[in-house]
Design a binder for these strands. Structure first.
Lengths: 216, 216
DNA sequence: CATAAATTACCGTAAACACGGTATTTCTTA
DNA sequence: TAAGAAATACCGTGTTTACGGTAATTTATG
């Protein structure tokens, strides 16, 4: 029976063996109890309002039918305060990223030992999020990559950077010349040099390159 | 004495009380031993080549002098395979982000219990990264935010999106017409409509808006 | 101080753009 | 099935771009 300090867990998992071992794990652990289990997202949703609302949903990501990722936003609407933990055998970047973006609160690998899973659930309840270490590494790498690219040294001179900004902003050569109080011919020359340096041949290219490489 | 299975830890921490409790924690724990401890980045660096190289450096982020974040890249150069764990009482977004970008392998809160810290170090050695749950939550939120902005509904039709991509890529109207096997007049019409919808008046603007709003 | 790099300036032209208007056909979807 | 959205197509025109070449002056920098 649930007490004030007991948290209701739902399990959504299609692999019967893993599902059962999860059920056992939850049942055996103080502070948690099994609210409902299903082998598909659809069936889990059907239990809405019938079974006791979950505090945490443990869900496989690779379910047939509605995928676990699509399900996340649905759960969040049905149970506004629910915590969703994705359990998966995969640790591929795409899925991690999609699940996190969809609002998952944790992402654990199935190969993690039961004690690990329980430990993470407890931490989740205390207000954090939880990532398996290999997942954490991937997530951190995602954050690092863009900043490394930022370090590309800007091949443009000061003046060229200024003019590039105006070009990207869509000003005409004449407008730029007016702004900088120089001849339009000069702006034209700078533009040619900028194009040459960045290997672009029109403003669209320039804008794309300048923005993506953080040159301006 | 270090054995094959023992990992050398360095501690860089200026708070003497916390430093001592960390030292005790490491000393008491099987599989780890204390290599060197310092109360500043500068002193830690001075021990390079003298003391036994670290497998893991535990470091406070808010050190006087050279900050812990600045130190990360230095350590990584001195000890190419070192794992760096940031320990802090703060969990403010900026520092987390900076430390991760600088290449930290873990980010733990000082208020975490010793068992937690040890546990995380062990996981780190096994190849993951490690984040305290409150930190994990912040990091995950960072990933979610940009994607929420992405949810701005794209006012462009399918065809317009395709043509926008080509326009941003710098193709001429004629080139686009050829690619899509439609008349250049049609591409021209689409372009006009795209400009109207996005309130832009030239390709630079289009590229900027399309990229920044994630429309393409 | 000498040399290179950066900034300035001018000319000409084919190609492309931006945008006005108008109009038919083909989806969608209420 | 009727109405609206989307995709298609054509015309004309003034403006702007992209890029070729050439060159003087100013500003670093070794």
């Amino acid at each position: 029976m649930p007490t004030e300090n007991t948290h209701t867990i739902w399990i959504v998992e299609d692999d019967p063996i893993f599902k059962e071992s999860l059920e056992d794990l939850i049942t055996m652990t103080d502070g948690f109890h099994l609210g409902h289990t299903a082998n598909s997202v659809e069936k889990a949703i059907q239990a809405f309002g019938i079974k006791e609302n979950p505090d945490i949903i443990l869900e496989d990501i690779g379910l047939p039918g509605l995928s676990g990722i699509e399900a996340i936003s649905i759960y969040k609407k049905l149970f506004p305060n629910v915590l969703i933990v994705i359990l998966t055998i995969f640790d591929d970047d795409e899925r991690v990223f999609e699940a996190i973006k969809a609002g998952a609160d944790g992402y654990l690998l199935k190969r993690a030992p039961g004690s690990e899973i329980i430990h993470n659930l407890q931490q989740l309840i205390q207000g954090g999020a939880t990532l398996s270490p290999p997942i954490a590494k991937k997530v951190m790498n995602m954050l690092v990559k863009p900043s490394q690219q930022k370090t590309i040294k800007n091949p443009l001179t000061k003046r060229e950077v200024i003019i590039t900004k105006y070009l990207v902003d869509g000003l005409t050569i004449n407008e730029i010349a007016d702004k900088l109080v120089i001849s339009k011919h000069t702006v034209d020359t700078h533009t040619k040099n900028i194009y040459k340096k960045l290997h672009v041949h029109n403003r669209s290219n320039l804008a794309t390159v300048a923005i993506k490489k953080g040159l301006i």
